[in-house]
Amino acid sequence: MASQRIFQLGLRRTAASGFTRTQTAGRIVQRRFAATQNVNQETGQEILANQRLKRPVSPHLAIYRPQITWYASSLNRITGILLSGGLYLFGIAYLAAPTLGWHLETPSMVAAVASWPVFAKISAKALVAFPFFFHSVNGLRHLTWDLGLGLKNQTVIRTGWTAVGFTVVSALYYTFLV
């Protein structure tokens, strides 16, 4: 055992014989023969900014496979914007109505809608019902996630399709039967 170690040490000393002796610093110092030039601060910044232009850009959304997880998430935001946008537009129009001579009181609006053809009524109902039910049901999913529940991928997929199913059924019911 001891003889083996002594033999190994001897081998190592032979292999690295150059480093066992003390050397002057000048022999170890690296020398690099690269062509360099001094530039001022502004030029340096410019070179760096131009290098940054060549960095990769985030890929387009279209490269991702359509899946219920991220589709439902996008739809949640889009439906929210539609519903709230409608509310904001109505609010602004309601305040501007006396000045502009519009009639946005409930009785006159009801009378106006009553005079619409059936097709227009059904379209308007569908336009409100689908976003409303989707945003409401999907909001419940989001609230359960915020409690830390139902975060497994399979569960998210299942609840996503459940939300879509519930939306379609209730929106169709309220569009055509109520």
Binding site: Q41, G44, Q45, L48, A49, N50, R52, L53, R55, V57, S58, P59, H60, L61, A62, I63
Partner: peptide, 19 residues
């Protein structure tokens, strides 16, 4: 195989501070 397809081109870059 996919196309190079970006939403927005990179804007002119500016560097805050030094490199």
């Amino acid at each position: 195989a996919t196309r190079r397809h970006q939403i927005l081109p990179a804007l002119p870059q500016k560097v805050e501070g030094t490199a």
